[in-house]
Simulated assay, not measured.
Amino acid sequence: MRQCYLILFGIFASLPAMAMTFQTRLENIEWKVEGDKFECRLIQPITDFGSGAFVRRAGEQAVFRLNAYNSVLGEGAATLLAAAAPWQPGRGDIDLGTVRIGRGQVLFNSSQAQAGRLFRGLLEGRSPLVRHYSSTGGLSEVRLLPVKFRQAYSDYEACTTKLLAKNFEQVRQSQIGFPGGGIELDIKARFTLQVMLDYLKADPTVNHLILEGYSDNSGNRLTNRELSRRRAMAVMSYFKENGLQESQMTLRFHGEQYPLAPNNSAANRAKNRRVSVRLERVPEPERAAPPAPAKSSGTVS
């Protein structure tokens, strides 16, 4: 009997592990385009799995994201491919490198370079394919199909033209330089402030700014302190002229304190002549609840 068990075990051990493939039936393929000024998404739902999506945030290039209803793939490294379609005989798959499968609903975000190559592959009729081997050797594949892709890609591209120049992480703190030594905003400074202003107007949750003026150490301390104040005031004036309220801004000035670089060269002194602008989300004060109406002891018929 023991020999029988050993023989059976050897037979099953020699069988290939089960392979699972997730993809939507051809006739059910759809691409969805979603987005606003902050992010654009090009999504293909995947039956019984989740979705694959190209996600482009303001100020960045797109990444490819795999979303799942559950962690059926398991954690670990997987291979990302721009695979030839079954109806393209003779074309090989293009290996785009590895991605790391994690926990949660978002299994991974590809690199921007990988997403760019997937875009090119889809336009050529290729399929984004994620191939994952489990620790026991089981193979799982998730495939998107290029059906109906071109029109959806055109709609996605139209969405990206409306994105802001930068996202919150990119604009939340900026240095406005005064390389010439005065208090006037130059073209570069105005461009940076306009990018911040565009974000402020698009995101009402960002409702406060902290402006901090600085100088180099060329003059005496009192002169430098006044210069730093006037530079901060110049930035405040720009925002006020473009619709922001003074109550939304906190102004500070530090003179030659806290230099970015040692004041030992003309280039370093130019770096220190600046205004730091920081955007913040400040919760609105809670409004007092209106008094409850007085109860009536009479009846109305």
Rank of each mutant, 00 (worst) to 15 (best):
E284Y: 02
S14Q: 04
A152G: 06
A19S: 14
S301D: 09
G90F: 11
A270I: 00
L139E: 13
R120A: 12
G181V: 09
R57C: 03
R269G: 04
L279R: 00
F64A: 03
L15G: 02
L81Y: 09
S135Q: 13
S218G: 01
A115I: 05
M233W: 09
G243M: 05
V106C: 06
A202G: 09
R57L: 03
R231H: 15
P259R: 00
L66D: 03
K271D: 02
Q248I: 00
T136C: 00
A261Q: 15
R91H: 08
R231Q: 09
R269V: 01
M249H: 12
G125K: 07
T192S: 06
D93C: 06
S14W: 11
M236R: 15
Q245W: 01
K295G: 06
S140N: 10
G90M: 10
Q175W: 14
E60S: 10
G177V: 00
E30H: 13
N167F: 00
M18T: 13
D48F: 12
A13K: 04
I94S: 03
G255P: 04
A13M: 12
S276E: 13
A266T: 13
L197I: 02
N272F: 07
L185P: 01
N167W: 01
K148Y: 12
F119R: 10
E27Q: 09
L279C: 07
L222P: 01
K162C: 00
Q194E: 15
P290N: 05
K295R: 10
S110G: 07
I176R: 01
P283Q: 09
S237I: 00
R131G: 07
D36N: 14
H254G: 08
P179T: 15
V63D: 02
M18D: 07
E60W: 03
L107E: 03
H208V: 05
V206R: 00
A83V: 07
A62F: 01
S297G: 02
Y214A: 11
Q175F: 14
T136S: 13
L163K: 09
F38W: 11
E30K: 10
F22Q: 08
E141C: 03
